[in-house]
Simulated scan of single mutants.
Amino acid sequence: MLIYSGVRVSELLDLKRENVNIEERCFKVAESKTESGIRVVPIHDRTYPFFKKWYEDGNEYLLHTPDGKQFIYRNYYDSYWTPVMELIGCSHKPHDTRHTCISMMTEKEVSPTLIKKIVGHSGAMSLTEKVYTHVNVQELLEAINRI
Score class of each variant (00 low, 15 high):
residue 143 A to Y: 01
residue 59 N to F: 14
residue 40 V to E: 02
residue 131 V to D: 11
residue 48 Y to H: 07
residue 32 S to E: 07
residue 34 T to K: 11
residue 6 G to D: 04
residue 103 S to R: 09
residue 74 R to T: 06
residue 27 F to L: 03
residue 113 T to Q: 09
residue 54 W to H: 12
residue 34 T to E: 09
residue 95 H to K: 13
residue 64 H to F: 10
residue 76 Y to N: 04
residue 86 E to W: 06
residue 28 K to L: 09
residue 75 N to G: 14
residue 110 V to R: 04
residue 13 L to R: 05
residue 82 T to C: 14
residue 95 H to R: 13
residue 13 L to P: 02
residue 47 T to Q: 11
residue 51 F to E: 00
residue 99 H to S: 12
residue 71 F to V: 03
residue 109 E to H: 14
residue 97 T to W: 10
residue 36 S to H: 11
residue 100 T to Q: 10
residue 67 D to W: 14
residue 7 V to D: 04
residue 45 D to C: 07
residue 58 G to A: 07
residue 120 G to C: 04
residue 40 V to K: 05
residue 7 V to N: 05
residue 44 H to R: 02
residue 123 G to M: 06
residue 115 I to R: 02
residue 37 G to W: 06
residue 33 K to W: 03
residue 25 R to C: 07
residue 126 S to Y: 08
residue 140 L to M: 05
residue 135 V to R: 00
residue 59 N to R: 15
residue 145 N to Y: 03
residue 124 A to T: 11
residue 66 P to Y: 03
residue 60 E to R: 13
residue 5 S to W: 04
residue 102 I to S: 04
residue 64 H to W: 06
residue 100 T to R: 11
residue 65 T to M: 05
residue 131 V to C: 12
residue 46 R to Q: 08
residue 62 L to E: 00
residue 18 E to S: 15
residue 90 C to K: 15
residue 55 Y to L: 02
residue 127 L to W: 10
residue 74 R to A: 07
residue 117 K to M: 12
residue 28 K to G: 00
residue 17 R to H: 14
residue 94 P to Y: 00
residue 64 H to G: 08
residue 145 N to M: 06
residue 144 I to M: 04
residue 41 V to G: 01
residue 129 E to G: 03
residue 16 K to L: 05
residue 18 E to N: 13
